[in-house]
Structure formats: structure tokens, C-alpha cells
Nucleic acid binder design. Sequence first.
DNA 1: AAAAAAT
Length: 498
Amino acid sequence: MSFADLGLSDELLRAVNESGYTEPTPIQASAIPSVLMMRDLIGIAQTGTGKTASFVLPMIDILAQGRSRARMPRSLILEPTRELAAQVAENFEKYGKYSGLSMALLIGGVSMGDQMAALEKGVDVLIATPGRLMDLFGRGKILLTGCSLLVIDEADRMLDMGFIPDIEEICTKLPKARQTLLFSATMPPPIKKLADKFLDNPKMIEVSRPASSNLSIAQYLVPLKSDAKRSTLTALLQQEEVRTAIIFCNRKTTVRELNKSLRRSGLASSEIHGDMDQSARLAELDRFKRGEVNILVASDVAARGLDIKGVSHVVNFDAPWHPDDYVHRIGRTGRAGATGVAYTFVTPEDAENVANIEKLQGQKIERLSAPATAAVETPAAREPAADSPRRERSPRRGAKPRTNAPSFEPEIAEVLPEPILDDPLPAEIVRPVREERRPRDEARPQETGRSREEGRSRDEGRSRRGDRPARHERQADDQPDDGWNGPFPAFLEVTLNR
DNA sequence: AAAAAAT
């Protein structure tokens, strides 16, 4: 299968070729012919599947016929964020360079002057976030009656951001006779309703797995007690060869506090989050890019779109709420052929988020507590440099940690479910925390305990530690209950040894 | 629950 088989025009194929792409991704292969046949389409696909090109490419060919009129765009692409909208616009520029289509990018945060001028001249493609589009529409700068092709991208994210009423309103302003494409990573009921209302006999395409969850990124989960996050991070930053790192937190307050704390420890870090205005964000980003600081503590503003290249480490200080964000966060590293490492700290509170991430990825992320693997394959498990004074003080691999150190609690291990794909456990074991809160379990505490132990043994049996005794059996031979089953990655040894 | 999205 090649792009030439999909029915695209020669000049478009030339532009695709020059971008270095030869083979369409699965979603492109199935979406492009249908879109060219002017069918409505629902694409269930995550980012990283080549989703954008699957609508940009056929759109360019469809729009190649005909010309735009003043204030009457011929097509509209709705995006939830400014960054995504800008990214789609880049795609149009790249692939449409031989097609001579005109385009306007309507997003907030920039002046409206240029946007209004472009609209006045007439554009073939309008790429917009809902807010600015509605604003300009309200000012009478846009007529949507000539807009016969609509793309609603990342519909589930639009839902999260409260854009659905806006989308509905925009849909009613478009002509009834039009082609509509809707893309979404998931299909919650409100999105299904939206699709039923505004799409006509759509073709459904589902691409479950992202093209790859980036093979150039080594991913690890680090199960931790909640209060061990900071000390573990500090140890990680000291022990690993961290050239540049982005530390993602879920909350702006965490971003601020963590950055302060890192700076107090003498690290060159800075922060970026949504409470900072656009210029402050850019300034901090610039300091990071120039190498003035090598650690950037960030909220999810920096997860998407932002062009930060050559980052050696991504650390999810908190596991992201949205599994989709995980892909974006770790995608800040391992770019352009470089390899990167992504650590995700997992406390009991994060466990459910992690379960969703693995479900979305359709693959397991290695837990650092798994012995053999962590010691041999983990970059984190490299021996400290020979001249490092820490080497002598560090316990040998597998040695018992001190009791006063932050350590891995047995309960926590059980909250971390095994990957969904891999012979799933019964629901009450997969999500013990949630089950525990239910009154019927309080009434029967022993049974909860027992099913957990069962979960544990199955767990042990399934992984590569088949010949090792299960942890609760090992306890008998006088080992301290550290919760770890084996050797520690170097950066964790330091934490435990404090 | 959090961040972002129009000013």
C-alpha cells in the first residue's frame, strides 16, 4: 500500500513524497478514499496515528476544484486548542504547497487584524478554535453558508473543555448539504449524540493502537508512596545523566511548589503553566531552550504542541488525568531520532490513571520494581560512575534498605494493576482501592484481604519471576518487608539510603 | 479533579 493507491492527485503526492512519507498509516489508508468520495466519517483514533493527514490530504484535493469568495470559507476545521490548530495549519502548508490553497488560522491570543484581512480576501480553509471563530462570526466577518466541508477534530477533548454547545451552534450555521468528518479518541455519549445529529450515514473507522508509542522512548513506571515523590525526583535528577528534563505535574500549585523546591536544592529549573501570560511562558521556554536552565517543571500547557526538542528525560511527577496527555507528555522526548527516557511516578492516587494509560496504549509499561528487568535493562539501573563517592555508600543491588527510608508499601503494589491486555484480573483485584471504599467490603475485611493475596500470587506467577517465591512467602525468611522484590535502580538506591 | 479556550 502506498499513497499513490489512495486516489490522491499528483501534485499532492509530490508534496507528501517531499515530506518523506511513503506509506500511509492504517487510518490514512482507510479514511482518505472515503473522504475523497465525499462521505461523512467518524474516526476513532488517538494522536500519533497519522490522523491529521488523513483529513488534510483529501481535503486539499477536494478543495483544489473551485475558488473561494470573500468572507465565505469553503471548509472549516475545528480544533480544541490553539497549539493543535496551529499544527494543522502547518500540515496544510506542508502538503498544500503545490495546490495554491488559501488558509486562515483563527485562534485567540493573537491580534484579529490579520485574521480579518484574510477572511475578507476569501479563504479555502479555515482552521479555528471555537472561541475566536464565534467572536469573528458575531462581528459579521464570516459567512458559513458556503462551507461545505467540516472537520471536528479531537471531539472528546472539545467535550472536556465545554465546547460542545459552541460546536452545535456552529454546525447549525453551515449548509445542510455538506461533508462532515469527526475525529475523537473516545466516544462518550455526548459525542455519539453530536455525531448522530450532524453526520449523515458516516463511515466508521477505528484505529485502536497509536502507530507506535514511540519506540525511541524507554518508559518506566515508578511505584512510590505519596510522600516519596520529591526525594525520588531529586535522586533521579542526580543519578541519571539528565541533560534536559521536563517534569510534568497535574496541578499548577504543584508546578510552583516543586520548582521552588528544586531551586532550593540548587538545581537550574524553571516553570511553565497556564497562570502565566503568553509572554512569560515564552520567556521561560526560551531559557530552557537556550540551556540557561536544564529542568522545566510544567503543567499540561507544555504537553501538547509546544516545540521543545532534544529533551533527554520526561518525568511525570503525577500521572496525567487524561491518558491521551501521557502520549503527548512523553512525546517531548525521543524526538527526531534521539532516544529518551520517560518515568512516571505512581502513587495509589495515580493508579487508576495509569491503568487507563496502559489500556489506551494497548501495552504494558515496565514497572521499575520488577527485579531482573529493572537491573539489567533499565538505563536508571546503570552503575554509578566509578569515581562517584556514592558508590561505596550505596547498598549493593538487592541489599535491604533502611527502615527509615521511603519505601514501597505492599498495598501500593496491589493498587497498581497489571496491564489490561495481559489476562486481566477480576475487577475487585484490578481496582482494590475503589472496592475497599464500598460498604459491603468493610463488612467483610478478611475476604478483601484474601482476594488481594490471590491477586498477588497470580501476579507473581504471570510475570517473569516464576521461580521466585512470592513476596509474602519470602517474608518468612527474616527479610525486612521493604516491598521491593529485587535490585534497585541506582537513583532509587540513593533515596532509600538516606 | 486540572488546564485551556474569546477579551
